[in-house]
């Protein structure tokens, strides 16, 4: 059975004069126990989509089911079985870690002890601070607490809206580790993120931009479908280099990528031609072929 089915969902905000379209006919399916990533820039419609699926927002068009239940008709049943972690930390800052967890457990008619095994790995990291007020926790700890609270009623589907935004690199890595472990519990996880490098950590990714899905595939599938050659170039003057790369007809696209610039070759051109072109510019540079990764694919998709 599909865990989440979204069929042609559209959402508009505002009245007649100033309408913002957040989602334009989105459809996708998520299998049970899948870690599904929704990748897109700010304002792509990720949060609107999550709010519709967690029954907080009504869509104008289209239907969606979560765990086989319609998000409009069976919203009460859905609220029993989904966990939602909003992008912004929204637990009670004036209650302690333990009080927050207890509170969310009790309003779902369960207890922390009952589902302790599920959150053990995550919660044990913040347990030493269980008497500290939630507002006084660090960003990474807040996020762990929020995840614990979202999991405490053993949801079958977990929605994580930009869980890693504003979290340091180490905590981000840890967080994805935790998600991997949760997957083993057969919990379906939908996670949205603006960071493309996190896409490769998902089972499947949907790239979303301006309320439309550009592609849905496994991370490997996305890379495989790229089909263009990427050249990494480096020089002492990166700014001039980028300007020169943008000027040439040989390339489809060029953008900074870590310590290199990535140059996407047109099908008809090759690395040698690019090398010749850059040598004419008269400054030292370093050039090498590289494998496209998922970010390159998304850059290309978003360009079109």
């Amino acid at each position: 059975m599909k865990s989440v089915v979204v069929n042609n969902i559209s959402k508009r905000y505002g009245s007649k004069k100033a309408v913002t379209t957040a989602l334009r006919g989105i459809s996708f399916e998520v299998d049970k126990g899948e870690l599904f990533g929704i990748i897109g820039p700010d304002g792509a419609g990720k949060t609107s989509l999550f709010r519709i699926l967690t029954t907080l927002l009504l869509a104008e068009e289209g239907t969606a089911t979560v765990d086989g239940l319609d998000v409009v008709k069976a919203y009460k049943a859905i609220r029993q079985r989904v966990g939602y972690m909003p992008g912004r930390f929204s637990l009670y800052q004036d209650l302690t870690v333990k009080e927050n967890l207890d509170f969310f457990a009790t309003i779902f008619n369960t207890s922390v002890e009952e589902n302790y095994d599920l959150i053990k790995d995550i919660y044990s990291q913040i347990e030493p601070f269980k008497d500290r007020k939630a507002g006084k926790l660090s960003g990474g700890m807040k996020q762990k607490l929020a995840l614990s609270c979202a999991l405490i009623h053993r949801p079958s589907v977990l929605f994580l809206d930009e869980p890693t935004t504003g979290v340091d690199a180490v905590s981000r890595k840890e967080f994805w580790e935790m998600l991997r472990k949760l997957k083993e519990q057969q919990i379906t996880i939908l996670v949205s993120t603006p960071y493309m490098d996190e896409a490769s950590l998902c089972d499947k990714v949907a790239l979303i931009q301006s309320g439309k899905i550009l592609s849905i595939d496994t991370p490997e599938g996305v890379v495989r479908s790229f089909g263009k050659k990427i050249i990494a170039v480096k020089s002492s003057n990166m700014l001039n280099l980028l300007a020169d790369l943008k000027k040439t007809e040989l390339l489809e696209d060029a953008y900074p990528f870590g310590e290199y610039h990535h140059a996407v070759l047109k099908n008809e051109s090759n690395e040698h031609e690019l090398k010749n072109y850059l040598q004419q510019k008269g400054y030292p540079f370093e050039i090498k072929g590289t494998d496209p990764n998922i970010e390159d694919c998304f850059m290309a998709l978003m360009k079109n």
């Binding site: 029954t55 907080l56 009460k76 029993q80 909003p86 800052q93 969310f104 008619n109």
Partner: peptide, 13 residues
């Protein structure tokens, strides 16, 4: 404002 109401709204409360 803090967003906690959102968190309550997704619960069966």
């Amino acid at each position: 404002e803090i967003g906690t109401i959102e968190q309550i709204n997704v619960t069966p409360v």
